[in-house]
Each structure stands twice: as structure tokens, then as C-alpha cells.
Design a binder for these strands. Structure first.
Length: 856
RNA sequence: GCCGGGAUGGCGGAAUUGGUAGACGCACGGGACUCAAAAUCCCGCGUUGGCGACAACGUGGGGGUUCGAUUCCCCCUCCCGGCACCA
């Protein structure tokens, strides 16, 4: 055994061993339970960044841990290879996006292999390859035929100087990033996927995802945004037809003082007819980016159309305004404005001097009524109709947040909104007013209750080159014809020159000129490509059937799916994870797979930050992990990454600290070296031990238990590592080299090698082969804690006086509460607080932990 | 703006179900070894007062519940992620 820790050599050796033995090749024929561990595949941006190192190490730790626990593990890897950055790089470097992408994949693959991941590389996929995208083109045509994909116009960012569509990312402060021109909104025809048809199932499915973080499920619930409300129609004065709005607060209808429509609304278009000023205002609204964040933070602006509508219940005439804060894409693109009870309406009304009418008053609870309500309604989730929160008339939360025994606390802080100035509805609470007003609207045929989703259909058309071609042929005679399966894939030409403005396939007749599959006449291909989320929405299934050339997936998908553990960045909490869930259901419904949900357990890794913001290529603040691997080795890089923070927290990158990880591995190596040099010894099994060695064994087996729990349940790798460090620190204090001590040391060291091997697999494999030459770490399995070694005779109690720590007390394991209380009252650090005029009020004993003496 | 999350020593973090705040590591200070340096090893390390025993204060800010709050509740500040064409 070498005296120094030769990380380069042992890492190379281990990686070669795994490759030539196909250690991580996944098989469907095992009789062990399967464990499919998937990390979000990387975009091949050029070089590995710290976020990748973190992501793939987490996945690898979980994979290797489960392999040791006796699972049949599959951990695949691939490339999310289509996307905008390739086009930008191609323009900048005067190359083709395909060439750039393939070169990046090669380089990053080398880097990933250097990390020592237990990946089955035979299953590698790249989404830009025709063998991959052929199948999503096939699925597209199937869904198109089923009506789940359809065409409609949608708004995009239009750069009038370059004459091109821009991504939101390419719009900076309302201007095109290249041209600097003011961006306009433009409506163009695009393909949409009917994700709203699955809204209810996508929402309900969340309740069954016990292995997902609550945080992510909440975000998805809010994104899907099921709301209970009313549609309300306002007859337009002097014209036929009604203005329809959607509201979740029909109880405030009597407080509506104006209505507001989005600039894109039909009524807005109508009003501009003889009003050039209004037309100009609408044109102004149509400038700027389409991103919702920009719309929502823009200064509120509006203009009176001069039109009026009639209030459906009180007959008042309300002015119709065009307002830039009304979203065209939600509800009806029009709102009834209740300035007294909506902050946005309030701000707008103040600015334009519109009237404000209060119709809700907050009153304290009637306790009796509340308790009666509690009894009838205490079970079940909120239905959206509930109590106001007492602060400005938010939507009722309706969810009783506590168990019944804590009701007083909740009750003390709550008020309930009651209708006032509302005629016949005065005195009604939210739910009563909601029902009464909805009933009256329905009787007048001017509205009804309606549930509404915030979720919109998914626009998948992109006017860009480097993506999967949309498999549609436009025929003057036959209309939109999906490309027949036998003509797939529609190949994207890879040898192209980018001009930075127009997609190469949009000006390439050899691509778009074709014949209609139906009538045989002249026709043109669709030249838009698919959103890259399309590829990443089903890749998890393709890994199972990576080499299948007869179908999108085969039976192997039903063996591996669902993914047991998915690991990836929190930034994907909504879009990618929702689309992947949607695709899983689509694939289920065309009969390809059986499972309802794609990912059983989800670990959302926090961002790797540098200087306070996300490390990303676009921000140019990445730290290259290659230098880290070259200087210290992959094990040090992995150890440091796992040690620096728990995986779900964001990690602020700091160069210092790597040194500490490296030092620890060197110490570990040295400890094993010094032990092995003294000759072979069998790990301790039985015999009398000194108190010191007994204590060490106790700590060893507690550590085995803790590390297993940290890996398997808590996913807190940082505390797993620190507990092993503590164990190694304890071991270092014992210097004796007698046979018994050496046998315990052997037991500690070989277990440490096993415990750390998911995190630092190379060094552990090397150390284990020195410590146990007859065995191999890959056959050893996960160690089990020895219960006998963990029996303790005494328990250390913490003693507090009035909640403040005053001393420690060692108590026999059998001592009962009375004995402990008596002992505590004999301690000087307790008695000294028993002054004249004070007495012991009570003593709280928390078993095996703490005693608190309350003196007053 | 809306949705979700976060804030603990000089720094990264620990405290798992309301029960010892600061584990483990980094940085720093002191010492040993060395001709010297590096490496390594040992000791110290929240703040204030005290020679010390010890005491008071202390988990972004303000209030509350509790014998006891980093943890639960209410309000506020700042930071991070997402907001549908970045992936």
C-alpha cells in the first residue's frame, strides 16, 4: 500500500474497473427490486459546471447507496441537446449548432466520466438525434389526430428591426438584445398542446405524490390554479351583446364601479374604431415583452373607452376601461373592478379618479357560530369559499389550519367579511353572498358559477432552427396533414450556416418543399420547431428502451417506470416537472406505458450560487470544476460538494473549504495505511473491551445507523459526512496497537470505507481492497448497525433551572422519574437558585434527555 | 406584482417530533516538529464582564404562545428561485 494518497492513480483504476466489468450496466432480468435513479440530463453547454457536479453526485450517492442495499439500479445519462444557446454559439463561432453540440457532448462526457458516476453509458441518448426525435414526431402526429394538439394564434415578442421572434430571455428592458429595437407583441399561428384537458388529473395526482417536497406540490397546485368563481355578464349599453368577466369574488359584485378589458380584447378593438387616441394607447400596450412578470410590474395605465355596460344586478351604468394590468390570457381577458376590495383595482381607481365603493366589512367572529361551523366543516380541504383573512379582503382561504385543540389560537386572530352597502345581500358572509348572487345572476341569465384553471394550453411552436421539426405538411387542398409514420423522422438538416436572424430551414426549399401525403400535390413543410421542453418531457421513459427502433418505448419501460428517484434543480419545479407529468399521462393514454405518474420521489437540489446569484452560462459567473478535479481528484470534489450544504438548500460557492475535504481524505488514507502496515487482523467480533473501546464501538454503530438514515431517508449527506469525521476523530485518539484494539480499529476502518463509498467511491474501493483483500467492496453490501454494541448503561441528562442550562447529570438507565427528580434537587447548581421566598413549582422530565426545574 | 423558499459566529453549515444553540469543516490565533518553510500534529476560538469559578446577552427586526422557541402563531425587512419562448 502506498504511503501517500495517490488519487489520480486510484481514480483511474477504479473507473477502468467499473468500465471493463460493466459494473453499472442495468438489466431487466434481476430478481432484486428495481431502483431507477434519474438526474435531470444536462444541456451540453460546453463544459461541466458546479450545478452539474452537485446534481450528478447527489444522484450517484443515492444510486450507489441503493445498489449496496441490494437494489437492481439503473442510473442513465443523456443530453438535452436542442436549444437556443447552440444557435447563439454557432453564430458567434461561425459553426453549425449540430457540430457545436456534438463536440460539447464529447467533452462533457469525458468530464462526467472523470467524476466517477455509476452510470450505464450504454443507454446514453441525445435528443437532437433523429433516432430520438423521430418518436416524439410520431407522438405529435398521434396527438394531432386525437385533437390534443391544435393550432391557434398566440402572442410573441417581435423584433421589428431584425424581423424575428425573440425569446423572453432575448428581450432586455423591452428591447431586442441584438438590435436594441423596441419589442412589439405580435400574434402568429402556433401549435398548442391541450394540457388543460389534463388539468384536473394533474392537480389531483399531486395528492398521491408523497415522495415529492410539499413546496413543489404547492407551486404546481398554484400554477394549475383551480379557482371557484362566477362568470358575470354586463350588457353593453347601446349595443347588442354582453361583456363577460370571470371573478372569484362575486360577493363583491355590488362594489364594482367600472370594468376593465385587456388591450387585446374584442371590445377594445371595437372602441378604437373612431378613436385614434385609443388606438395609439392600445399600440402602446402592445409594446414591451410578453412575459407576465413584465406585465404585472409595469406601471398601471389605462384609458376610458367611452363605452358603458349595465351592472347585471343594480342596473347602474359602469364605464369600460382598457387597462394594461388585465391579462388577455386569463379568464375572459376582462375583469369587473372592485377598487374597495382589490389592491390593483384600488391603485388604478385612485390614479384615474374612479369611484370606490366598500361592500365588505370585517367583523369579529361569533364564537358560537364559529364552533358550530367547525363541527360541520372541520374535515376536508378548503373549497375556496371561506373566511377572509381580515387584512384587506383577500380571497377566502377556507382551510382550517390547525387541529381542533388549537382552535382558540386561530380564532383569536380571525375576522369574517360581511356584506354591507349591498342591498338585499347585506349581512351575508362570503359563502352566503356567493351563492345568493350566483343564483340571481343565473335567474337573469347573466352569469353562473364556474370553476376556472389558471393553467393555459402549452404553446409548443418555436420559430427557431435548432429543435425538432414539427411533423406537419401544409397542403393548399388538404390543409394541415400530419406526416405519416413511415415518412418519419422529418430530419433537421445539420450542415447549415446561421445568419442570426432567420432559421436556416425557413429559407431552404430542399427542406420545406414537399408533396402532400394525402393528395400527392405540391405542399410545404412546417418550418417551426418544437419547444425543447418537448424532448425533456419523455426522456425518462426512453432510457428504458434506449435502443428500440420500432416504437417510442417498449415493455422495458414498464419494468423501469416510474422513476424511483428523480434529482434536479428547483428551478424546474413547475414547467419541466409539470410537462413531464403531462407527457407521462399522454403516453399512458396512447397505450405505451402503464404508470400514472413518472417520478415517485423527487429531490429538488438547490442552486449553486456565486456572488449571490445562480451560476449559469448566461450570467457568466460559472466556476469550472475541471480545475478542482485536476488538482484534488473527483473524490475530493464530490466530498466537498456533498459536505458544503444539504442538497435541497442553495449553495454559495467558496473556493476555500475544498482544502478541508482533501485533508480529510488524506487523513483517512493515512489511518488505513498505518493500520494495514502492521499486518492483517480480523474485525472485532467478541470478547471483553475496555471502556474506551466499548465507547468507540458504540460510536461506530451509532454512526452506521445515522449515515444510513441520512442517505436513505433524510438525504442529508453533509451530516452523514460530519458524523463519519467525528468517528475518525475519535479513532485517531486511540493509539494502542494490541490485538484487541487493532481488531476494533479494523472494524471501524472497513465500515468507514463502506459508509463513505457512495460519496467517495474511488478511495473507498482502494482502501477496502487493502483492508479486506479477500472481499470486494462492490460485493460487501451496506453494513448493519449492531444493536448489542449500542446498549448504554447510563443516560446523560441536561438539567435546566427555569429553562436555562445549569448542569449535567449521569443517571442509570433504569432510574424512574421520581428518582431523577430527587437526584436533581440535590445538585448544588439547582439548590443555589432556591433562595428565600422561592419554591420549586414543578419539575419537567423529558425521558432520556432533559430535566427542567421551575422555581418561582 | 403574483407563487414558492431562505436569513444561525469572521465563513459554509449542525441542532431530525418544541428540549444542551454553534456539531463537523473552513478561516484565524498560539504551540510542537524544522536551520527554515511547507506539510503534519496539539491547544484555543459567539459577544460582553471577570484572574477564575461564573454571569449576562445571543439564531434578520418587532410582538405573541410555552416550564422551555433557531423550531409554532401574527406583522415587517432583505435575499434567492419561478412566472409559460433560458434550460
Amino acid at each position: 500500500m502506498q504511503q501517500q494518497y495517490p488519487f489520480k492513480q486510484i481514480e483511474q483504476q477504479a473507473q477502468q474497473y467499473w468500465e471493463s466489468n460493466k459494473t453499472f450496466a442495468a438489466s431487466e432480468t434481476s430478481d432484486k427490486p428495481k431502483y431507477y435513479c434519474l438526474s435531470m440530463f444536462p444541456y451540453p453547454s460546453g463544459r461541466l459546471h458546479m450545478g452539474h457536479v452537485r446534481n450528478y453526485t447527489i444522484g450517484d450517492v443515492l444510486s450507489r447507496f441503493h445498489q449496496m442495499k441490494g437494489y437492481n439500479v439503473m442510473q442513465p445519462m443523456g443530453w438535452d441537446a436542442f436549444g437556443l444557446p447552440a444557435e447563439n454559439a454557432a453564430i458567434a463561432n461561425k459553426t453549425a449548432p449540430a457540430k457545436w453540440t456534438y463536440e460539447n457532448i464529447e467533452h462533457m462526457k469525458t468530464q462526467l466520466k472523470q467524476l466517477g458516476l455509476g452510470v450505464d453509458w450504454d443507454r446514453e441518448i441525445a435528443t437532437c438525434k433523429p433516432e430520438y426525435y423521430k418518436w416524439e414526431q410520431w407522438l405529435f402526429t398521434e396527438l394531432f389526430k386525437k385533437g390534443l394538439i391544435y393550432k391557434k394564434t398566440a402572442t410573441v415578442n417581435w423584433d421589428p428591426v431584425d424581423g424575428t421572434v425573440l425569446a423572453n430571455e432575448q428581450v432586455i428592458d423591452g428591447r431586442g438584445w441584438r438590435s436594441g429595437a423596441l419589442i412589439e407583441k405580435r400574434d402568429i399561428p402556433q401549435y398548442f398542446m391541450k394540457i388543460t384537458a389534463y388539468a384536473e388529473e394533474l392537480l389531483n395526482g399531486l395528492d398521491k405524490l408523497d415522495g415529492w417536497p410539499e413546496q413543489v406540490k404547492t407551486m404546481q397546485r398554484n400554477w394549475i390554479g383551480k379557482s371557484y368563481g362566477c362568470e358575470v355578464e354586463f350588457p353593453i349599453v347601446g349595443q347588442s351583446g354582453n361583456l363577460k368577466v370571470y371573478t372569484t369574488r362575486p360577493d363583491t359584485l355590488m362594489g364594482a364601479t367600472y370594468v376593465a378589458v385587456a388591450a387585446e380584447h374584442a371590445l377594445a378593438t371595437l372602441a378604437t374604431k373612431d378613436n385614434p387616441k385609443l388606438a395609439e394607447f392600445i399600440a402602446e400596450c402592445k409594446r414591451g415583452s410578453v412575459a407576465e412578470a413584465d406585465v404585472a410590474t409595469a406601471e398601471k395605465k389605462g384609458m376610458d373607452t367611452g363605452l358603458f355596460v349595465t351592472h347585471p344586478l343594480n342596473g347602474e351604468q359602469l364605464p369600460v376601461w382598457i387597462a394594461n394590468y388585465v391579462l388577455a390570457s386569463y379568464g375572459e381577458g376582462a375583469v369587473m373592478a372592485v377598487p374597495a376590495h382589490d389592491e390593483r383595482d384600488f391603485e388604478f381607481a385612485k390614479k384615474y379618479n374612479l369611484s370606490i365603493k366598500q361592500v365588505i366589512e370585517f367583523k369579529s367572529f361569533d364564537k358560537k357560530e364559529f364552533l358550530a361551523k367547525l363541527i360541520t366543516e372541520q374535515s376536508g380541504r378548503g373549497d375556496g369559499y371561506g373566511y377572509g383573512d381580515g387584512e384587506g379582503g383577500g380571497h377566502g382561504d377556507g382551510i382550517f389550519p390547525y387541529t381542533v385543540d388549537r382552535w382558540q389560537e386561530w380564532y383569536a386572530n380571525k375576522t369574517v367579511g360581511i356584506c354591507v352597502n349591498s342591498g338585499k345581500y347585506d349581512g351575508l358572509n362570503f359563502e352566503q353572498a356567493f351563492n345568493a348572487i350566483a343564483a340571481d345572476l343565473e335567474a337573469k341569465n347573466l352569469g353562473k358559477k364556474r370553476t376556472q384553471f389558471r393553467l393555459r394550453d402549452w404553446g409548443v411552436s418555436r420559430q427557431r432552427y435548432w429543435g425538432c421539426p414539427i411533423p406537419i405538411i401544409h397542403c393548399a387542398k388538404c390543409g394541415e396533414v400530419p406526416v405519416p409514420a413511415e415518412q418519419l423522422p422529418v430530419r433537421l438538416p445539420e450542415d447549415v450556416t446561421m445568419d442570426g436572424v432567420v432559421s436556416p430551414i425557413k429559407k431552404d426549399p430542399s427542406f420545406y418543399e414537399t408533396t402532400c401525403p394525402t393528395c400527392g400535390g405540391k405542399a410545404t413543410r412546417e418550418t417551426d420547431t418544437l419547444d425543447t421542453f418537448f424532448e425533456s418531457s419523455w426522456y425518462f421513459a426512453r432510457y428504458a428502451s434506449f435502443d428500440c427502433d420500432t416504437a417510442m418505448v417498449d415493455e422495458r419501460a414498464n419494468y423501469w417506470l416510474p422513476v424511483d428517484q428523480y434529482v434536479g434543480g428547483i428551478e424546474h419545479a413547475i414547467l419541466h416537472l409539470l410537462y413531464a407529468r403531462f407527457f407521462n399521462k399522454l403516453m399512458r393514454d396512447v397505450g405505451l406505458i402503464k404508470n400514472d405518474e413518472p417520478f415517485t420521489n423527487l429531490l429538488t437540489q438547490g442552486m449553486v450560487l456565486k456572488d449571490g446569484s445562480k451560476m449559469s452560462k448566461s450570467k457568466g459567473n460559472t466556476v469550472d470544476p475541471q480545475a478542482l478535479i485536476d488538482t484534488y481528484g473527483a473524490d475530493t470534489a464530490r466530498l466537498f460538494m456533498m459536505f458544503a450544504a444539504p442538497p435541497d438548500q442553495s449553495l454559495e460557492w467558496a473556493d476555500s473549504g475544498v482544502e478541508g475535504a482533501s485533508r480529510f481524505l488524506k487523513r483517512l488514507w493515512k489511518a488505513c495505511y498505518e493500520h494495514v502496515e502492521l499486518g492483517a487482523v480480523i474485525a472485532y467480533t467478541q470478547g471483553e473491551l475496555s471502556a474506551e473501546l466499548k465507547q468507540l464501538r458504540l460510536q461506530l454503530h451509532q454512526t452506521i445507523e445515522k449515515v444510513g438514515d441520512d442517505y436513505g431517508r433524510r438525504h442529508n449527506f453533509n451530516t452523514a459526512i460530519s458524523s463519519v469525521m467525528e468517528l475518525m476523530n475519535a479513532l485517531a485518539k486511540i493509539e494502542a496497537t494490541d490485538e484487541t484494539t487493532r481488531s476494533v480499529r479494523q472494524e471501524v476502518l472497513q465500515n468507514v470505507a463502506l459508509l463513505l463509498s457512495p460519496i467517495v467511491p474511488h478511495i473507498c474501493q482502494a482502501l477496502f481492497s487493502e483492508l479486506c483483500p479477500a472481499n470486494h467492496i462492490l460485493r460487501a453490501g451496506w453494513p448493519e448497525a449492531n444493536k448489542d454494541a449500542m446498549v448504554q448503561d447510563t443516560v446523560e441528562y441536561v438539567v435546566q433551572v427555569n429553562g436555562k442550562l445549569r448542569g449535567n447529570l449521569s443517571v442509570s438507565r433504569e432510574a424512574d422519574k421520581t428518582t431523577i427528580e430527587k437526584m436533581v434537587l440535590e445538585q448544588t447548581y439547582v439548590t443555589k437558585f432556591l433562595l428565600e421566598g422561592t419554591s420549586v413549582r414543578k419539575i419537567i422530565v423529558v425521558p432520556n434527555k432533559l430535566v427542567n426545574v421551575v422555581i418561582a
